[in-house]
């Protein structure tokens, strides 16, 4: 059975390479930007007002996808909370420094790691916030920025200091950020434009921090949500209570 699957898959690959040579799967004009992409490139400075066109697409043209995307992250954080029973009995153990086996395998974190982490910790936040607020001006934005902020949490976990996961705060942030995204969108629905996620703020002057209408706000909300969910998901796995034997 395994060999069959292997042979079929490798045959599919060879077929694909051959088809590229013979042009079987080539559609009309593969080397040009398609109609939608062309239109986005031409209109985005006027409609979305962001320097970074990718941000215009992520937050404005396909903002609804982004809402779905943060929902997926929310779901996986929620799923991990369900599997690891965070907020339930684990709350009383949250002050301990992770699974016991961990330090034995890797050795206790050294002086340099601990000191370095303490110094670097605020810079992670600062850099993350910088990336988030410049999302509409340069590569970056809510997703990378949120991940950078969450990295600060991970470094704190690595040092093995008595790490306390602000469980309550994270949950509030997760829910609040999601609701703000929907709220900003609904404001568009009830504005004269009359459609969800419509741009209700003035576009400002092109290329400055305060431009592009609601895009930076939405991206900030996404950043908060990503940061809270990533730290929550990893923190909950790490601060897992004793394995629970059931049934």
């Amino acid at each position: 059975m395994r060999h069959v699957v292997g042979i079929v898959l490798i045959a599919a690959f060879i077929f694909y390479v051959l088809s590229l040579v013979s042009g079987l799967f080539i559609g009309p004009d593969p080397e040009a930007v398609g109609p939608v992409g062309r239109q986005v490139l031409e209109q985005s400075t006027r409609e979305a007002g962001a320097v970074n066109t990718v941000t215009s697409v992520v937050v404005f043209y396909r903002g609804f996808d982004t809402l779905g995307e943060v929902t997926v992250l929310f779901l996986s954080a929620l799923g991990i909370a369900v599997f690891f029973r965070a907020g339930g009995e684990s709350a009383n153990r949250a002050g301990t420094s992770g699974p016991a086996g961990n330090t034995e395998e890797c050795g206790a974190p050294g002086f340099i790691l601990r000191t370095g982490a303490r110094i670097l910790y605020p810079f992670f936040f600062l850099f993350g916030i910088y990336i988030i607020v410049h999302g509409h001006l340069s590569p970056g934005g809510g997703f990378p920025g949120g991940v950078i902020i969450a990295t600060g949490f991970f470094v704190a976990i690595l040092t093995g200091d008595r790490f306390h996961l602000p469980e309550g705060l994270l949950t509030v942030l997760e829910g609040f950020a999601g609701l703000s995204f929907i709220g900003l969108g609904l404001a568009g629905l009830f504005s004269p434009a009359g459609s969800f996620l419509a741009n209700i703020l003035p576009l400002g002057s092109f290329g400055t921090i305060f431009s592009a209408g609601i895009l930076p706000l939405l991206y900030a909300v996404v950043g908060v949500k990503v940061a809270a969910e990533l730290s929550g998901a990893v923190g909950r796995i790490y601060l897992d209570p004793e394995p629970v034997e059931e049934q």
Binding site: T71, F74, G168, G175, G178, I182, L189
Partner: peptide
């Protein structure tokens, strides 16, 4: 606009966020 079908998606979604936000 009140009965826009998009509300069919937004209502359960915001309720889910709200449940987590207000979990305490």
């Amino acid at each position: 606009p009140v009965l826009s079908p998009i509300l069919l998606i937004l209502v359960p979604l915001s309720a889910a966020f709200l449940i987590v936000l207000l979990s305490s």
